[in-house]
Design a protein around this nucleic acid. Sequence first.
DNA 1: CTGTTAGCGCATTCAC
DNA 2: GTGAATGCGCTAACAG
Lengths: 330, 330
Amino acid sequence: MKHITIDDIAKEAGVSKATVSRVLSRPNLVKEQTREQILSVIQKYSYIPNVFAQALAGLPTKNIGFVVDEFPNNFYIDLADGIDGIITARKYTLQVMSSLWDPERELQGIRSMIINRAAGVLLAPSSPDCEAVDLLKRSKIPFVLLNCRTGDPDISCVSCDNYQGGALMAEYVKKLAFEQMVILPVADHQTVLDRIAGFEDHINIKAVKPILSSSAKTYQDGYRIAQFIAETYHLAEKKTCMFVANDYVAVGVIAKLLELGIAIPSQVAVAGFDDIRISAMCRIPLTTVSQSVCDMGRIAAEILLDRIMQNKTAPVKHLIEPRLVIRESA
Amino acid sequence: MKHITIDDIAKEAGVSKATVSRVLSRPNLVKEQTREQILSVIQKYSYIPNVFAQALAGLPTKNIGFVVDEFPNNFYIDLADGIDGIITARKYTLQVMSSLWDPERELQGIRSMIINRAAGVLLAPSSPDCEAVDLLKRSKIPFVLLNCRTGDPDISCVSCDNYQGGALMAEYVKKLAFEQMVILPVADHQTVLDRIAGFEDHINIKAVKPILSSSAKTYQDGYRIAQFIAETYHLAEKKTCMFVANDYVAVGVIAKLLELGIAIPSQVAVAGFDDIRISAMCRIPLTTVSQSVCDMGRIAAEILLDRIMQNKTAPVKHLIEPRLVIRESA
DNA sequence: CTGTTAGCGCATTCAC
DNA sequence: GTGAATGCGCTAACAG
């Protein structure tokens, strides 16, 4: 099944391929009559230009790259959903790649996007100043960072106002009655640090006991670490309030706490962050902070597309408003 | 930042570009000494061939297309995860597209893959004989269908043995004590039909009351429909066992049932299918059938890659063994 | 073993 | 308005 080319169309229509090309790119440069005629031939053979030839001839591609940490990450899913909506509506195509939290793979992903001459790149970076971002800057390909905040004035980025989200939760939680406050960070990510900073700045209670440098990332991690926390902080005796900086971990913590016979929220109140799908459906529906990740994807995609089409040339930094979601766990 | 080309390398190395090209594709055709020398120049400039030029010159691309219904679908996530692992290990790239359950969009997605000359395509089709599959066949691009079973001997496909899974659940469930059996189908998908067929063929109990043509697909749908079911089948009075053909819906059903004050599993036992992430973490951990979707993605990707590289030319149909997972809900 | 040549399919000057 | 010519970067014969 040989693909038909612009030459075939030109021959059939009795014109030169230059004219056919014009009909496709700048139709108004062609006399209406011949244009209509060529168009009909194109229709007849359902001719579609070869993207590689176009790209080689200098046209920008229509695919945008997207690099995330890992697919099973709830975050990615909603992000992809939002991005997809915007992207495909404008006939762009999405190329995805996972870094699996490995900076080397992350870098490799960006390289792949550059090699494939992506028109633009969306990246949820491991850190705002990782090598991948650096490479991206040098490549001159338009890009926007997701779930990340940076001071670099040349970089567009969109993220939730995590600090504000932490503050929101603190304001809510400090009205609750409890004897001690435990903060469980998750990973070392900027977003997490911001959440906790916002929380600590507004909780203004001396009894705060942050557990430092936890590397809990998943449900399983939360489940595992909960036992340790319960013992160390005597959760069974002291009424406590716990702020877990990410829902996925929080759900695991809750599961274990329940197993240990600790009542939630009466004995231990648990507050999360993210409002992932599970949060509303788990054992004890989670009180958390929502950051409409889907919007984040949508907005980032829009910013990127604007930059690609040169509509807007100035980098934009967008902060998404967090929203407190009160359910049963706290 | 002008990209350097094969000519630059050739010039710098004092050879013709044909030789450079050979070093990259069939190094053993080049004398070791010159090869080393050229390689060092390539290193020095970190030269990477332009994929478009390569494609235009006839080389197959290194990207494979993946069309799913929608990103938020739990199924997609695990699939993508499995596929990604195989694909990127072999330096292939993944291009994704969502159909949003719309056959027209599905078709458009496949068109996009064809236009971009995907080396191969993975498709979780709305139906085994939808237009998209047809187009794919005509395009001569290697492809394999996911989560789908077809009699067409030319088509490779991999799916769970849904019939067997249904049977498995039936065998387990029929040992339980209950007065009536209710089956809740979800959507009209082939996989669902298979599950129910397997279940019905092995439950051999007259009191089976299948609810016909339910279009429940999501948690919300399950939540909504549960009320109706509870009333219609007097769940509060009659001990019943319920088979919901998909976990996402089942979790919703359970949530509503609990709200209605119906005890699970003592009053109503609920069995699901899929074993999605939420199943283990929801209100009442779900008894369900697991089909290791990640493996499904992995296997499909492997089959596809084999076909692309011509290692295996015969279409293969792979059935994944389902596994009963007994938790609390039944 | 290596260089020369001829496309691959298209966009784009530049003439007419 | 339209056509002829050139180049995009690379691969694959075909010679030498």
